[in-house]
Design a protein around this nucleic acid. Sequence first.
DNA 1: AAATACATGTTGCAAATGCAACAGTAATAT
DNA 2: ATATTACTGTTGCATTTGCAACATGTATTT
Lengths: 157, 157
Amino acid sequence: MDIDTIEDKKYTDSIFYETFLTGKYIKKIGEQLFCKLNFDFSAEEFAAMDFLYQSSGICQRDLAVKMLVDRANMGKILNSLEKKGIVKRVLALKGNRPVKMVNLTKIGEEAYVDIVEELRTLLNDITDEITENDVEVISLGLSKIRGVLGKLLKIDI
Amino acid sequence: MDIDTIEDKKYTDSIFYETFLTGKYIKKIGEQLFCKLNFDFSAEEFAAMDFLYQSSGICQRDLAVKMLVDRANMGKILNSLEKKGIVKRVLALKGNRPVKMVNLTKIGEEAYVDIVEELRTLLNDITDEITENDVEVISLGLSKIRGVLGKLLKIDI
DNA sequence: AAATACATGTTGCAAATGCAACAGTAATAT
DNA sequence: ATATTACTGTTGCATTTGCAACATGTATTT
């Protein structure tokens, strides 16, 4: 085999960059959709609400890890949600450490359910095109990517 | 089948959110790696250099579309690269429209090649774990995701 | 030909995000 | 017991990013 035929793919042709771009794409679509539908929340705020609806009573740091934002930013997102009456913070102990447990308020739950309902009617037919098998395969691939990169560098939050 | 057993997956359990998170993860790893290696460029700047190395003489807007950033931001990224002597902008015509064609300078090409070389030695063994088949499958899946979301909303840059 | 619409790039402001430094508390070391 | 280290959350600042408005030049409409 001729050595000249061996050529590296450029970074922007790599699966890493494509994944990065697709993530950006999802973010943009999400933000613009939320704006268009006059939701009073950013996509990150909604993600926080989604996590809290599943597992209420989680501390700020654990939520930050799930959302891949740093503690400072997590605090600011929660400040915004708290101002809107969506979440409530309560001092508590995790192990023996003092933490702030975050909970959805009644208002927060209602707002969350409303958004989910509105999104469902909008997304139902569209997302049908992605089969369960698709999801499984993509998810496996993404997890492999994260695994590989995780060996390179650790992100601590 | 009992209706109560039918339950929607939460947003943060969806393939969309997982893809979004993985993109964020890649971005963070990239930025921190570039910082750790004392590269004088952000990951977005390097991506621009990578595109320009492939297809020199592209106008700002076309580059912005490839990178999924808006024209204003693209201009600022290129300002930064121009200040460092990496790129050069030349007035030209695309069709009959006056545009600014962007080119890598000699210095830019050298800096780019240096970085690629340093990254290769670092990434070679690690990325072997992701097979060509993996890449193909993931890429197909991501493209399906973009296709589905693209029907929902259009992003114009 | 004049007016309107479109395309490209820039500027200024606002929002989002991250980082470093700090405060407060608990665990560990000495 | 005291000092040091580690964990959680906050504050302030700097950077990044996007959006709206603008300037400039081209295409299209009338």
